[in-house]
Structures are given as C-alpha cells and as structure tokens.
Design a binder for these strands. Structure first.
Length: 258
DNA sequence: ATGTCAAATGGTATTTGA
C-alpha cells in the first residue's frame, strides 16, 4: 500500500498536474495540503472517477487539507482542537489511521504566527500522544520545519529564520517521541531528500531545497515500509507545485490481520 | 530588496501569503 503526502499549492491551479500524477502513480492514499478552496470547488467527482474517495477540510483561499483513498475512508476527523484554520484532517483508510497536516509557516521568529506554529505543533504532539499504542498510523504533511541541518541546503542562509530554529526542531522531536519514525530519513540517512524549493531564484535548478514534508509512521508500520522516496519529477515541467510528493510503500499484509 | 506563484480585489495593478 502506497501512501503519499503532497502540498499542491492550490488544488485548482494544480489540477492538471495532480490528475496526471494520480494516474501515473499507483498510490492508494494521498494526504494533500493547501487545497486553497471550499468544498463547493473541491473535485470530489473527478477524484471518484480516478478511483478515490475523498475527505476535505477547506477554508476558501488559504490552507485546506484533504485525504484521498482507494482503500476505504471512514471516521473522518476535521480540525486540530480549537484551531480555527483548516490545517488538520484524519481518517481511517484500510489498516491505517492517516492524518494530513499543514503546519503554520511561522513567518518570522518575532511574529505572532511563530508562536501559533509552536502551539500548533505542541497541540499535535498532545493529540498524537493520546492515540492507542496498537494503532497503525501515518502522519503526513507539510511541517514547515527542516528537522536537521541535512534537511537544509545552506544552514547559513537560515540563521535567524523560521523552519530551522531550535524550538521548531524540538517540537518535531516531540512528535517523534510519541513513537513515530521519520521514514524517509530513516531509510535515507545520508541524502538530503529535499521536498520543497522556492519558486524564486532558480532554486530547484540550483538544488536549493528544504526537506519540510514528512511521513511519520508508528514503529510497526515503519518496520513494514518497503521503500520511501521524494518524487522530484513532479517538481519539474509546467506549473508545478513548489513541493514534491513524498511516498512510502508499506507492506500492510504484515499487520492487517491484527 | 528575492530570476515566483496563487488568490482576491473594485482589478486592467496591487496586496497578501508562502
């Protein structure tokens, strides 16, 4: 079973690329961020034609998260605690409980939005820490944090900036400490595996990237992961998102009988 | 102040956010 996470930066603007990607990649579950639309615009019908059930939490022009599934979709959970923004959605898809997360950007270290980001991550850790230990879970999304310097093309550029600060990295570590594995980093300990490149400055061509889109798996699910990768091809071509999809292939036969 | 993109606006450019 393949599970992907992808910040599409407007599902409306990205529809042709998303449709192409879904058609040419045999992915069972897709965690989407930044749909930037309401339910009335969300392409439920078109996705159904591609074989996906979908659940969406939209907020008009900003944010918006969704889950697409070919293996069932039930017990949908929308929103994180008392957060008023559309940044969190969960569902049960086959043997997995999955979550699509769009962590606040933070803007700058002295901005109120940075405090909102840290609180949001703390709330997420609290929420995930309360889950049942026998739950097979995939927490994916745009975390807007590069967990280590290996996840950043040039740490010197980011001194004093968001995405790399110690409190943000500690907040990611708190998520991990609820019993989750950053599967791409575990399987690729020495490669950067960037997932995002700024549209500006020819960043993609120059390999000026960050790894800020993560797939966090509980230990049992991580042990059943055959492979994981970033699909850089999706960042090329016409009208790409500034993020690439991240994919994990899980042998769910190892635990689906439980 | 960025070799950019996307959405919304009272709009044929600017603002906001990323």
């Amino acid at each position: 079973m393949k599970v992907a996470t992808w910040n599409v930066n407007s599902l409306n603007a990205r529809w042709v690329r998303v449709e192409e990607w879904l058609t040419s990649n045999d992915v069972d579950v897709v965690l989407i961020q930044e749909t930037k639309q309401n339910d009335t615009k969300f392409p439920f019908e078109q996705l159904a034609q591609l074989g996906y059930e979908s659940a969406h939490l939209g907020q008009g022009q900003w944010n918006g998260v969704a889950i697409l599934s070919k293996v069932g979709l039930s017990d949908v959970e929308r929103g994180l605690g008392d957060d008023v923004e559309a940044r969190f959605i969960g569902a049960t898809c086959g043997a997995l409980r999955v979550y699509s997360c769009y962590v606040p950007n933070g803007r700058s270290l002295d901005n109120d939005h940075y405090q909102y980001k840290l609180k949001w991550l703390a709330d997420l850790a609290h929420h995930l820490g309360a889950r049942a230990l026998d739950q097979r879970v995939v927490v994916g999304g745009d975390f807007n944090v590069a967990p280590s310097d290996l996840d950043c093309y040039d740490p010197s550029v980011f001194v004093g900036a968001t995405h790399v600060s110690e409190p943000e990295r500690a907040a990611i570590n708190n998520l991990i400490e609820t019993g989750l594995v950053d599967i791409v980093r575990q399987q690729h300990p020495d490669e950067p595996c960037y997932t995002w490149w700024d549209y500006r400055n020819g960043s993609f061509r120059r390999a000026w990237g960050l790894r800020i889109d993560l797939l966090l798996l509980d230990a049992v699910t991580a042990a059943a992961a055959r492979s994981s990768y970033v699909d850089r091809e999706a960042r090329k071509g016409e009208k790409p998102s500034d993020h690439a999809p991240v994919v994990v292939d899980i042998d769910t036969d190892q635990f689906s009988a439980a």
